[in-house]
Design a protein around this nucleic acid. Sequence first.
DNA 1: TAGGAGAACGAAAACGTTTTCGATAAGGAG
DNA 2: CTCCTTATCGAAAACGTTTTCGTTCTCCTA
Lengths: 335, 335
Amino acid sequence: MVSLKDIAGHCGVSVATVSKALNGQSDISAETRERICAAAEEMGYMANAAARALKTRRSYNIGVLFVDQRSSGLAHEYFSAVLDSLRVEAEQNGYDITFINRNVGKRPTSYLQHCLHRGVDGVVIASVDFSDPMVAELAQSNLPVVTIDHVFPGRCAVLSDNTEGMRSLVRYALRRGHRDVALIHGELTSVTGKRLAGFREACEEAQLRIPAGRILQGAYHDSDTCYRLTKQLLSAPPRPTCIFFPDDFSAIGGMNAIREAGLRIPEDISILGYDGIRLSQMYSPKLATWKQDTAALGASAAAELIALIEQPGTAPEIRTVPGSLIEGESVDLRF
Amino acid sequence: MVSLKDIAGHCGVSVATVSKALNGQSDISAETRERICAAAEEMGYMANAAARALKTRRSYNIGVLFVDQRSSGLAHEYFSAVLDSLRVEAEQNGYDITFINRNVGKRPTSYLQHCLHRGVDGVVIASVDFSDPMVAELAQSNLPVVTIDHVFPGRCAVLSDNTEGMRSLVRYALRRGHRDVALIHGELTSVTGKRLAGFREACEEAQLRIPAGRILQGAYHDSDTCYRLTKQLLSAPPRPTCIFFPDDFSAIGGMNAIREAGLRIPEDISILGYDGIRLSQMYSPKLATWKQDTAALGASAAAELIALIEQPGTAPEIRTVPGSLIEGESVDLRF
DNA sequence: TAGGAGAACGAAAACGTTTTCGATAAGGAG
DNA sequence: CTCCTTATCGAAAACGTTTTCGTTCTCCTA
């Protein structure tokens, strides 16, 4: 690896001058700057990130905390899409991303310690158990932090509009004439809470009372559980005419249960998913679902974090990313 | 951040002693070592990775090159699963992973330059256009490199057994009595080549001649293309009794085409996928497919790379990871 | 012409480690 | 008691940067 010293030797100047020329400082004459830059280019110079980070305390590295509970983190299309746009946005701004984990060397530590060790400039937290004290420790640290789909008091967050998403889905189903609807939701998290709120709002709006038995706790991204719960819903008459699922993936479990019961979708039972993954429009029938704008979520998170890093004064902002309704073909008209 | 100097001050020894105590060097008395380690623990010491990397030229960071052509990289379940197990294995060995891209700062460079800049200890390359000269440059550099699903001469590689996978699938279909089979394959890569070879071998073995029109080039992970090609296959009688698809995901496109033509799976047309993603066993019918051992692929790649890094003498090894046949319910008996 | 301003560059310290090598002390052998 | 080992520790250099603060030198103004 060629270093500043090599270039300095080659050009007959000091390392200080080379550094300043390469970094565009003003107290270098245009002529020498040209000469130095040309030499650097020609010699294939590449700054040593470690040395620079050591000196400047800026690593141009952002940490990403994605914990795949039930190994559905990276394999989950929603999160991998968010991660990917996050990565692209970060890279365009000159930042690399590294995954945060719980060991440095081979010894276990905390997420925060790991971040301090690596000297990341900031952190994006998503898809984790936000009740984990170790996550809270990281979120409350004095590193710049942006969370996705969760808000810690006083910190930045990027949210998918879960209340609006669920509200829109319910309104859509009610508009199509459904009155006896059921909801299977995921584990109780802030995301689930928002969606439940949206569900209730839309129902109240339509002066619809939903009996307790029509709201079941399932699990995200777990089609087996939804298969089971759907069977349960179908077995106790009267059947609902419409079922909301935690996400598109788990809706597949529900569809299987419905078909095994000899019922048709949407003629006998209408269904709605959530997420709008590509697959949802390949089922037949195409699924009615709420498309979360994963590209905007990831890019916003990165952009906001970088703003936080580069303009330390920035007030912590909570940005909500709108989604959109995909009508699909899985909700029948009932009049 | 507390540094070695702080600990040294606190314990009344030199930084050299602290460093050696913490790193388990032998020329430190047990008593002072205890004292220093205790102080380090209590003061919340965390080594500065940048300083260490600068001094030792080891970053404990491995670069991962995953390019998502057609944005199906991270969103592709196969690769995200491989990536995840790779990450876990690396982390367990004290390595972090960072994504390699083409810019340092905001200026574009090559993958190799980016690696040199970051000082990664080694690189895993997967899911890229292996004909890209910039990828070749990286692969032929003197960094430790492991590729997945592709072999560069003289370098380490971890391969999913594509020939065996396709051979097994074909044998399975032929065993069930199919004689007029069609294959839709992906873009021409070394992976596709292997699968084609497996396909041909199994056919020859059974003394089956496959007319040219029965082998079509489609695209990986692209259900639209497969939808179109399947329609084409179905429109020209005689129809094949069995179709092989590039992967499970694109098989969905094929299934839709088949069903739209009013045909049943598998009674009228049998189908086979490739990959064994979770979803494939949620379709109905469950898909006959070849399950690639993504967990082993990722873990092997990481393990092999780390071996290469830590024992520089290691001979470049090409490891093939076996997969397994999932029979599913999508291939009918034909006798 | 003297003085000051500004432009261009360099010396050196610093960031936090690791590592070599020398120094000191203790202990054992003769 | 002297000499040689061995154990334990520290001083200092080095890794490759960035940045502060001088130092020169030129040129302009009064």
